[in-house]
Design a protein around this nucleic acid. Structure first.
Lengths: 197, 197
DNA sequence: CCGGCTACTTGTACGTTGTACACCTCGCGA
DNA sequence: TCGCGAGGTGTACAACGTACAAGTAGCCGG
């Protein structure tokens, strides 16, 4: 249990992660270093290791936290129809979450299979929605990664080509339409095929 | 123009890249360092910079060279039908090329849009095959990255989850079937939709 | 046959990175 | 009042990518 504030510098796991986020977003991921992070918090570099096991762990936390708000709203609200719409929305929300943190795009890529809590929750939910869409439970083992990898890969690609500059809503539209389209293509296949493993 | 062989150590761009490949495949990408590379070549670390501009450039070359053999066979041989089969084969060949170098998987990911000559050739060929499949030229700007990102992302995912150990043919089968399946899903959509950009 | 030019390689070194070890120094509970 | 332990600091190390200047071998014009 970390104390709220108090003695020397009053670090917190959250304050560390927040500072890391700010540095990454303002100066790019390449300038996010243990030392730059420590400097911003006015702390010796080693102090960070009380709150974060390693830099890798810090990056892990960063990417997983970016998915914090995805798929947290209750599953079924009013109508039970349009399960497919729900699934599409979840995938698009994931896409949006990545697009909101362009500087982390490369991290998302090679952590697509990472076991972070938020990522896991999304995977579970996708799986459930697939079942709701009539996909056999066994087939979801293949379909879940296909869908998620597609979304992540697409987001990373868009950010890479568009230079991560035109990420505000006005210019995001076309890209979003494209993901939506390609997701729908995949869903067409997923919900139709018996999914050979 | 580098001389073929001769004086001190007789380096070559190819010998450097070969050694890099060997280190990456034997000891993992993390152990591929300018110094380890130099040591293997029995050369001072700086000597490498005469043949490779930087480590980044070396990695760029590594990933692009891995695609050397993909899509080099002539486009149309005998039958003009089954354009779709040709496109599928090209994508699967790309998949196989990545699976052959599991240690480079993460590199492929954030270089999916890289302008290497081999990558470019594949992109061009995919685009051409899409047109041959009846996709409007304008639509290919969207479809090409969708397909390639999908293939690369999928390969990376498979390697990441399966730990890059069972990459030999016997165990590769299921994964290959899955990509083939998902590619076919995407192609269904691509060749049917007018592709809104 | 010789002298220099050029291409290649080396030695040395700098700055930066992640991170371990030992020590200090508060504030709190007994 | 007195430890005790959490949360820091100082220092340090090994490894990284890479720049700069010097050296050395071979080839070519004379």
């Amino acid at each position: 249990m970390p104390r709220d504030l108090g003695q020397h510098a009053g670090l917190t796991r959250e304050s560390v992660l927040d500072a890391a986020r700010i540095i990454a977003s303002e100066q790019g991921l390449g300038n996010l270093t243990m030392r730059s992070l420590a400097k911003r918090l006015e702390v010796a570099p080693n102090a960070l290791y009380g709150w974060v096991a390693s830099k890798t762990a810090l990056l892990d936390a960063l990417v997983d936290d970016a998915l914090k708000d995805v798929g947290v709203s209750p599953l079924s609200t009013t109508d039970d129809s349009d399960q497919r719409g729900r699934l599409t929305k979840l995938l698009l929300d994931t896409f949006d979450a990545i697009m909101e943190r362009p500087e982390l795009a490369t991290l998302f890529l090679d952590r697509a299979a990472s076991p972070g809590p938020n990522a896991t929750r999304i995977r579970v939910k996708v799986r459930q929605l697939l079942i709701d869409n009539g996909v056999a439970a066994a087939g979801t083992d293949a379909a879940v990664p296909i869908l998620l990898v597609h979304v992540i890969g697409f987001a990373a690609f868009v950010l890479q080509t568009h230079g991560a500059k035109l990420l505000d809503e006005p210019h995001l539209g076309p890209a979003r339409n494209l993901v939506a389209t390609s997701i729908s293509w995949l869903l067409n296949g997923v919900t139709k095929t018996p999914a050979t493993a």
